[in-house]
């Protein structure tokens, strides 16, 4: 599992001299206090879903919109996603994809080990790297590895994969509760918020302690439905209250853009059908069994 090691934290938080991208409440406070948070998992260049989600979350009264990283991959025109996030001043946690694009690495550090998975990962990585402007690449290099904030009385740590590894997969059916609780306690947090797997789920770990995987905004969760999802979190009476919010967006328009850009038919099929066609070999047995392929 050599690939997985690549996701280890770089020794220093920054890879460039630019200051970290910490807009909004993070500009003035190391650990800002917020009331209602919308967390977006991997965007995968789905700029259309991102626009809808921003409007939706704002309409629901979120006072912090947060992206958990992986801006690129899969979808078309990566610069559009970057523009939207910068315009809206949305803080972003560094994902493996952003890290790779920023540093111009050979691959996306997704942690795939199967040749077919790697074949498709390579196509989208090369496309994304070639179509991301130098300015946006530099900007991605300024994403912090984690963001911490207070949600009422709860302390939330937002990461991409896990606190110990940017590209660690935390799947619902292969991640023990005691393991998650260890991560949360070690981080000195109450809630751990992450993405990287592309399927949203959550689990209570103990009084006031939770793990929440926001899933992905860029791709449906292998459930046969083209809607994508984000997570909304708030604190109610000292406990975490959260829900996963479905997002309907212009799927056909996105599919057409992908076709025009020459992206693989397999990716377009996933956007349209909601079933994953690639990246299947990293799925645990149960998650794989719920899908079609």
């Amino acid at each position: 599992m050599i690939a997985a090691r690549e996701g280890d934290r770089a020794p220093s938080e920054t890879t460039s001299a630019t200051p970290l991208w910490r807009p909004g409440p993070f500009a003035t406070s190391e650990v800002p206090e917020v009331k209602k948070v919308a967390a977006f998992g991997g965007i995968y260049s789905n700029h259309r879903a991102l626009e809808v989600a921003i409007a939706d979350a704002t309409g629901r009264g979120a006072d912090l919109l947060l992206c958990l990283g992986d801006l690129g991959a899969f979808g078309p025109h990566p610069d559009r996603t970057a523009e939207i996030l910068r315009q809206a001043e949305i803080p972003v946690v560094r994902g493996n994809y952003d890290d790779s694009i920023a540093r111009g690495l050979d691959d996306c550090q997704c942690g795939y080990t199967d040749p077919k998975d790697n074949h498709y990962a390579r196509i989208s990585y090369e496309y994304t790297l070639a179509n991301t402007s130098p300015e946006h690449r530099a900007w991605m290099g300024s994403f912090p590895h984690e963001l911490r904030f207070r949600l009422g009385s709860l302390e939330v740590l937002a990461v991409h994969g896990s606190p110990r590894r940017m590209n660690e997969f935390l799947w619902e059916t292969t991640t023990p509760t005691h393991f998650l609780d260890g991560l949360v306690r070690e981080a000195g947090a109450d809630v751990l918020l992450g993405t990287h797997t592309g399927i949203h789920w959550s689990r209570p770990l103990g009084p006031g302690r939770w793990y929440v995987n926001a899933g992905a905004l860029g791709r449906p969760p292998n459930d046969g439905n083209p809607e994508v999802w984000y997570a909304m979190l708030e604190e109610v009476d000292g406990e975490l209250a959260h829900e996963f919010v479905p997002v309907s967006y212009a799927v056909e328009e996105l599919a057409n853009e992908m076709a025009d850009e020459g992206l693989p038919e397999e990716f377009i099929e996933t956007i349209r059908t909601g079933w994953w066609t690639t990246c299947l070999e990293v799925l645990p047995g149960k998650e794989r069994g719920r899908g079609r392929h």
Binding site: M1, I2, G111, T113, D114, P115, F169, E281, V282, P284
Partner: peptide, 12 residues
């Protein structure tokens, strides 16, 4: 050869 024992190790 690194460790290839885990479920998601190299498949080829």
């Amino acid at each position: 050869s690194g460790s290839i024992c885990s479920n998601t190790g190299s498949t080829t």
